[in-house]
Simulated scan of single mutants.
Amino acid sequence: MNISFDGKRVLVTGASRGIGKNLALRLSKYNATVIALSKTKKYLDILTKQEPNIQTICVDLRNWQETRQAIKNILPIDLLVNNAGVACLNPFLSVTPEDCDLTFDVNIKSIINVSQVVVENMIERKVAGSIVNVSSQASCCALNDHAVYSASKGAVDILTKTMALELGSHKIRVNTVNPTVTMTDMGKLGWSDETKAQQMLNKIPLGRFAEVDEVTDAIIFLLSNHSSMITGANIPVDGGFLAT
């Protein structure tokens, strides 16, 4: 499949590490103009040393107004990936107000905020666009210690469908990818306990966790014209976990 994003400006949030970093580098190779957003400058500096053509924005997505202004400063944007996310993994009875505020600020409110600015400009320019929100298999099933995280990702899924419904008339597509455990540096650390990992692997028909490139591939497909009739969809990248 021949994919090129030549002439397209792509914003990736949470782009300094993990899936976001991999995606930013891949999109740059496909000739996109990539704008990478993160709150951590040192990781953005590492990214630009690796690929100097990538532009960066350093802003805390929890700050609504500063984020809006930062996005306005780099418009226009043709393609958007809302990848930034946090995971506060505590048993339900141990969930704190701080867990809820942090999780929903980053995992939901930032998607609304960033997307509003980008979409308003897309509509003004009368251009078609594609938005991919990174969700999780945890949006669709109950997992121990995932009460707040799963709730936020469930919200991502229905927000995505609502955006797709409302923005379809403007030729703007909105979809999610819903990965299982993914072998980022953080994923490897979080699932290094063999007993814990095996319990999850036993529920995945393909018998393994996802590699970062496999999640990135799905995002790139949804951004591209090869998915031009797909909107409002949740695409599992889970090795069949949700089929069991």
Score class of each variant (00 low, 15 high):
237 V>D: 10
234 N>R: 07
144 N>D: 13
114 V>F: 08
105 D>H: 10
132 V>F: 12
228 S>I: 02
36 A>M: 11
114 V>H: 09
213 D>I: 02
166 E>D: 14
161 K>C: 08
153 K>A: 10
192 S>D: 10
152 S>P: 02
30 Y>S: 13
129 G>D: 11
82 N>S: 01
5 F>T: 05
29 K>S: 11
180 T>V: 09
142 A>M: 11
146 H>G: 02
179 P>R: 11
36 A>I: 08
203 K>Y: 01
134 V>N: 12
88 C>V: 07
206 L>I: 10
186 M>A: 14
118 V>N: 09
157 D>F: 07
217 D>K: 14
118 V>M: 07
16 S>T: 01
140 C>G: 13
117 V>S: 04
66 E>G: 11
159 L>R: 09
217 D>W: 01
34 V>A: 10
23 L>K: 05
123 I>T: 07
139 S>T: 03
29 K>N: 09
64 W>D: 15
114 V>W: 09
26 R>L: 05
102 L>F: 02
103 T>R: 10
217 D>A: 13
163 M>V: 01
34 V>S: 07
177 V>F: 02
82 N>M: 01
183 M>L: 15
163 M>Y: 14
89 L>R: 10
51 E>H: 12
211 E>G: 04
23 L>N: 06
63 N>A: 11
12 V>D: 07
48 T>M: 11
169 S>M: 12
79 L>E: 04
147 A>E: 09
70 A>P: 06
142 A>E: 08
105 D>I: 01
111 I>R: 04
34 V>R: 10
133 N>F: 06
35 I>V: 15
145 D>G: 03
26 R>F: 01
239 G>Q: 03
24 A>K: 05
60 D>T: 00
75 L>N: 03
178 N>A: 14
59 V>I: 14
78 D>H: 11
127 V>M: 13
25 L>S: 03
226 H>W: 10
38 S>I: 01
244 T>S: 12
22 N>I: 00
69 Q>A: 05
188 K>Q: 12
137 Q>G: 02
92 F>R: 09
187 G>L: 06
3 I>P: 00
171 K>W: 06
67 T>V: 03
101 D>A: 13
139 S>M: 06
10 V>I: 08
141 C>G: 06
96 T>V: 02
2 N>H: 06
153 K>S: 04
5 F>N: 05
201 L>S: 13
215 V>I: 04
241 F>Q: 12
206 L>D: 03
15 A>I: 01
165 L>R: 15
205 P>V: 00
218 A>C: 08
211 E>K: 14
158 I>N: 14
33 T>H: 15
106 V>W: 11
83 N>L: 05
80 L>I: 05
140 C>R: 15
122 M>P: 04
63 N>Y: 07
189 L>C: 02
6 D>S: 11
83 N>Y: 05
152 S>C: 08
157 D>L: 13
119 V>M: 10
229 M>S: 13
26 R>N: 11
63 N>T: 00
61 L>C: 05
27 L>C: 05
181 V>I: 14
37 L>M: 13
95 V>A: 13
57 I>K: 12
227 S>V: 00
230 I>P: 05
70 A>F: 06
97 P>E: 15
217 D>N: 15
168 G>R: 12
10 V>D: 03
172 I>F: 10
17 R>L: 11
83 N>G: 02
